[in-house]
Design a protein around this nucleic acid. Sequence first.
DNA 1: TACTATTTTGTAATGATTATAAGTTTATTA
DNA 2: TAATAAACTTATAATCATTACAAAATAGTA
Lengths: 141, 141
Amino acid sequence: MKEMTIKDLTEILKEKNVKPSLQRLKILEFLFKANNHPTVDEIYSALIKDIPTLSKTTVYNTLNVLIESELVKVVNIENTESRYDAIPEEHGHFKCRQCGKIYDFHFDMNLIDSQVPPGFIVSEKDVFFKGICRECLNNNI
Amino acid sequence: MKEMTIKDLTEILKEKNVKPSLQRLKILEFLFKANNHPTVDEIYSALIKDIPTLSKTTVYNTLNVLIESELVKVVNIENTESRYDAIPEEHGHFKCRQCGKIYDFHFDMNLIDSQVPPGFIVSEKDVFFKGICRECLNNNI
DNA sequence: TACTATTTTGTAATGATTATAAGTTTATTA
DNA sequence: TAATAAACTTATAATCATTACAAAATAGTA
C-alpha cells in the first residue's frame, strides 16, 4: 500500500462522515501500512508508543467504526482472535497447517462471480485456503 | 446428506483410527444430518436428550478429534463462535448482512485451482460471501 | 464562556474455549 | 476371570478476546 499523508487519511474519513480524531487517523494509517492482518493486540502495542493514553477499548471501538464505514474488514482466519485488513487490492489468504503462517496471494475475484447465486447481492468476497506452505515442504525433505 | 447407519459411522471412525464411542458416533451422526453449520451449543442441546450425561467439554473434545481426522471442518463465519460442518459436498457460504442468515450454495472449487500459488499444497478451500440475500431484497421494496 | 454532543478511557462483565484432575469405561495381560 | 493399564468422559475452574457501562476528556456551538 502506498504512503498516506495525514491529510489523505483525514479526507478518507471525512468522506465517510467519520470524525478524524487522532486515534482514528493513527489506527487507519497503521492498517494501511500493515500487510499482515494485525490483531487488536498488535495494533494496540504498536500505537501505544505514539499515543500513550490509548486504550484497547478505543482500538475495538475504532475498528468497528471503520468496518461500518467499509474502510476495514475483519478476517477470521483463526477462531481465537480476529484480524483486520484495510480494504486492499483483492487477495486470498492461505494458512499453513504446519508453521501457522498466513500468506496473502493474488486472487482474481471476478473468476468466481459466475457462481454467485442469482438474486443475491454480494458486497464482499473471501477466499481462504489451508494446506502446507512451500517453505515447510522444503524443510521436510 | 444421505442416511447413515450406526454401522456406517462406526466404519468411518475406525478407518481414521478413532474409537467409535457412543458420544463420537452421535456427534458425527448429528453433523452428517445437520445442514446448518451447528454451533457447540446447538450440538450439545440436541444430543443431551439422547445422552443425558453428555458434557459440553466432550463436545469440544470430540469435535477436535473429528477435525484432526478430517471428518469435520470449522467454519468461522461469525467471530463470536465457531460452527462445524461434516465434510460435505463442496459449497460456499453466504451471510446476509441484514437478516444474518447463512446460506449454502453450490460452488465448484475446481474453478479456483488455477490461482493457487505455485509450490503450495492446498488441502482445504473456503469461499465466503457477504451481502444481501434475495429475501431481504424483496422485503425492502 | 457555558452548554451540548462526541469521543476516549478504565473497569467490570460476558461468553466461548481450554486446562486440569477425577471418575468411568474399555482393552490387555496374566 | 481378576487385575491393571490405557483411553475416554465429565465437572469445575481458568483463560482470554470482546463488549457493556459509566465517567472523564475533548470538540463543537451558540
